[in-house]
Nucleic acid binder design. Sequence first.
DNA 1: AAGTGGTCTAGACCACCCG
DNA 2: GGGTGGTCTAGACCACTTC
Lengths: 241, 241
Amino acid sequence: MKKPLNAYIFNDILTKIESGYFKPGDFLPTEQQMEKIYGTSRAPIRQALGKLEVKGFISRKAGVGTIVCEKKIEGPWTSMFGFADHLMKYGNNTNCITLDVKEIPATQKVAKYLRIQEGEQIIHTKRIRYFNNKPIFYLKHYLPNGTVKAIKDHGNFETMRTILTDTLHLDLSHVSEELSTIKATSKIAKQLMIEENEPVMKIKRISYTAEYLPIEFLEYYVNTEEWKFRVSFSKEKTNAE
Amino acid sequence: MKKPLNAYIFNDILTKIESGYFKPGDFLPTEQQMEKIYGTSRAPIRQALGKLEVKGFISRKAGVGTIVCEKKIEGPWTSMFGFADHLMKYGNNTNCITLDVKEIPATQKVAKYLRIQEGEQIIHTKRIRYFNNKPIFYLKHYLPNGTVKAIKDHGNFETMRTILTDTLHLDLSHVSEELSTIKATSKIAKQLMIEENEPVMKIKRISYTAEYLPIEFLEYYVNTEEWKFRVSFSKEKTNAE
DNA sequence: AAGTGGTCTAGACCACCCG
DNA sequence: GGGTGGTCTAGACCACTTC
């Protein structure tokens, strides 16, 4: 039981919000009151409230107080860190087939994204990901350096993210994606089992470590008939200048 | 002209990073050293560092120190809060034409998104947004209640966001989008000046206040030949405080 | 063992909002 | 004017990493 106080307070308040003890529109106790409730100083309380605020559960205003926000509408799926998050929430009526694993020299384009030299050997994989036995994603991965035969060993039924983090101990912290739409080529259409020239989403993804070093480049194609992307943003709460 | 200390420190460090005084991979001074440098206690220093961390400029590790991240790759455009942010950064070789403004009763679908009664009167607008004199976005807005004739008055060359925030004083804080791909209908194709059946991105957007009350529903279609979406995520690092 | 960031205490003053 | 959250001080101990 080594949980920091602020985490305990965070969970306590969140539980009371989700259970309906605090309802949307309600005012939470003031920070001063919470000092007595939890028997702590203001610091851990403010840490907890800060996290609840950036996550969109509460809204604080100086001179007024802290109120519980209206319920967030949370769709069944979200892009975010991709499949893995979705998997954990909604079970695994989803799987994955590796079509191809090759070691190839990096093309100019890939080298640029991974910040390596053109021609350097990289691992290239092609995979199909299924959801409810329908092919949804056609993925082309590009991974730097040759240490990655782990992928072959792990085979199917694994998310790439698991391999990256658990097996290779890479700390995937940032993801940047570029989205566009294209007509399905015959190859893509075949893999996603749709008609040629149907519109599909094409996404380029670069994953980074905490220090913004690229660790993965990924191009994938999505059947958006079957899979909707949800993205949500919140305004920055920065008072810097 | 009073600036909080933490904001001053935040700007100071950020400036030194962007000017190259602190380079990627460098260790920043320790928090203890900064106490002396800035002549403050740790609290404002930690607030500044916390903001820099969630923004991806630095990476902190207990027992190690604080290092400057590799430069973030920032594309020329990003979805985020839409056009307005882009406008401010890259000037306005972009404009907007309002095709149509009507008051209509809310359909079931729209009523659900805006959390109002079906049949309630709402404002519906159709607009085209141009970038470099090319039509990129075809937007269909749905705004609750009749207070919104401001839109008519403002006419073109305005972002919807400006109207919402400045004129109607609505505090747009959260945005949620759902993305899919469709074939351009003849109407869409005409407005975006592309061929019929070319793939376009279809996006549903709901905007919320800080308290997650919906204030706008928007469906729009994007020519992704001309406009790429960039989205980036960072792993939860909610050290707000 | 020494040093780092992470957490916490117990105070304090401020700007802001409301009645 | 009384109360709110926002900021700040000046300490303290902890878990963790590195030497």
